[in-house]
Design a protein around this nucleic acid. Structure first.
Length: 426
RNA sequence: GGAGAGGUGGCUGAGUGGUCGAAAGCGCUCCCCUGCUAAGGGAGUAAGGGUUAAAAGCCCUUCGAGGGUUCGAAUCCCUCCCUCUCCGCCA
């Protein structure tokens, strides 16, 4: 959510910034609602003030044994008047709330212009893609050869966009999550968390998935309004919802390994082959809660934390700054990390690190006590994948492949794989 | 699932339908006092919002959430959520 005061006092500036995303802010509607709000709020508060004043005088008169009948007659019409005013105000508030909850975050000035993926800006590359003296196989073929990747079985169990892993690939998947968690907790100072995979509407509104992106979520049947998490960002970030954090407790760094569930509505036909785009995938997530002045430095270090996983796994990648048109709803700035996939002969997203500034904090009511002002102020929140486990497996298989279809594993994983250093046909 | 108890400020914990945003204690901040420490004395200390260019001041809201009764609700009524204890069931 944007700062209401800023939007109110400077709608043109806000509109200009949002226009970079291709979002058109109806400033006319906004200022209309706002001036309405002002009138209605003043009216309601004045009526309430009157009511309190008179009620008190009734109390006093009663205590002194005076006749209260004339006083009662005096307030008679107040109640009805207040009720109508409150109803109008509440309606106005509702509309403003809906409008505000639908506004995306303001972009940081360093975000490059552009409408789509094409315009994202490459920041740096790491590692050299191998030149193969044979035709690269993709992870589906490699998984089949090495054994343990079963899309057909998953399709029968559930449907499209699911996978079953068995044997050494299931183990590799587990090894990867353990490895990632170990690095984030022991080397980068994150506190490991175990969190619910099912959350309520308020929580998803806090991080910005709701109300706008409900169709991307899996919703549970039942009396409670529950959703499967699309990312651990949701429970982890909401850990600080409705809290005031003391300065000395910042920054907070949380990590968690969770499955993520996404309906992938609107991506029919995209990445249908393989594990790239699934309804269920595992991810190790990083979340940071920081002082506002430190959030951009934190974005750089957090991106580095994601990169270090790829470096240890010896996977070539590049970092891109998302352009204005490609950046997510709640983010002010985002770096995507894209890993090299030989079979696709291109880089594909494997991590996304975002600074949401105060956008989520305002929605959640997450604040810190600024020692300079002594007042509670919204914190800044960041989140990043560290990393998406399924896509990391894809990258490991494809980048480690040998001419005979076996797959060499990087030394960083050896301790997690027992004695296995190469995945070969069983 | 059954029976009971309870949800009040950073924490503990009082609270009568009216002057209660709420006693008291702890914690915290500032000041005083003692050579230091320990102890003691005094003052202050919730959040959100509006009005304002901003502040001061003033006003509104908030005692788990939402409704209701009333001139007036932390206090009375209804519904829901959550926590605790006992019983049952259970990974």
């Amino acid at each position: 959510m944007l700062d209401a005061k800023l939007v109110r006092t400077n709608p043109e500036l806000v509109a200009q910034n949002l226009a970079r995303r291709g979002y058109e802010l109806d400033t006319r509607q906004l200022t209309d609602l706002e001036s309405q709000r002002k009138t209605l709020q003043l009216q309601v508060e004045e009526l309430r003030s009157q009511r309190t004043l008179r009620s008190k005088s009734i109390g006093q008169a009663k205590a002194q044994g005076k006749d209260i009948a004339p006083l009662l007659a005096d307030v008679e019409s107040l109640g009805a008047e207040l009720k109508t005013a409150e109803a109008a105000f509440e309606q106005n508030q509702q509309r403003l709330r809906e409008l505000f909850l639908g506004l995306p975050n303001l972009l940081h000035e360093s975000v490059p212009d552009g409408d789509s993926e094409e315009d994202n800006q490459e920041i740096r590359q790491w590692g050299q893609p191998r030149t193969l003296d044979f035709t690269a196989r993709d992870h589906v073929d490699l998984g089949e050869g090495v054994g343990g990747l079963h899309f057909d079985r998953a399709a029968r169990l559930t449907g499209a966009r699911f996978v079953v892993m068995t044997g050494q690939l299931a183990r590799l998947h587990r090894a990867l999550t353990q490895f990632m968690l170990d690095v984030q907790t022991t080397e980068h100072g994150y506190t490991e968390a175990y969190v619910p995979y099912i959350v309520n509407r308020k929580t998803l509104t806090g991080t910005g998935q709701l109300p706008k992106f409900e169709e991307d979520l899996f919703k549970l049947e039942g009396d409670s309004e529950y959703f499967l998490i699309p990312t651990a960002e949701v429970p982890l970030t909401n850990l600080v919802a409705d809290r005031i954090i003391e300065d000395q407790d910042l920054p907070l760094r949380y990590t968690a390994h969770t499955p993520c569930f996404r309906s992938e509505a609107g991506s029919y036909g995209r990445d249908m082959r393989g594990m790239i785009r699934q309804h269920q995938f595992d991810k190790v997530e990083m979340v940071q809660i920081v002082r506002p002045a430190e959030s951009y430095a934190a974005l750089e270090t957090m991106t580095g934390h994601a990169e270090s996983i790829l470096q240890k796994l010896e996977l070539p990648y590049r970092v891109v700054a998302l352009c204005a048109g490609d950046i997510g709803f709640g983010a002010a700035k985002t770096y995507d990390i894209e890993v090299w996939l030989p079979a696709q002969n291109t880089y594909r997203e494997i991590s996304s690190c975002s600074n949401c500034e105060a956008f989520q904090a305002r929605r959640m009511g997450a604040r810190w006590r600024n020692p300079e002002t002594g007042k509670p102020e919204p914190v800044h929140t960041l989140n990043g994948s560290g990393l998406a486990v399924g896509r990391t497996m894809v990258a490991l298989l494809e980048n480690g492949q040998q001419a005979d279809g076996s797959v060499k594993l990087p030394p960083a994983l050896w301790p997690y794989m027992g004695s296995v250093r190469t995945l070969a046909a069983p």
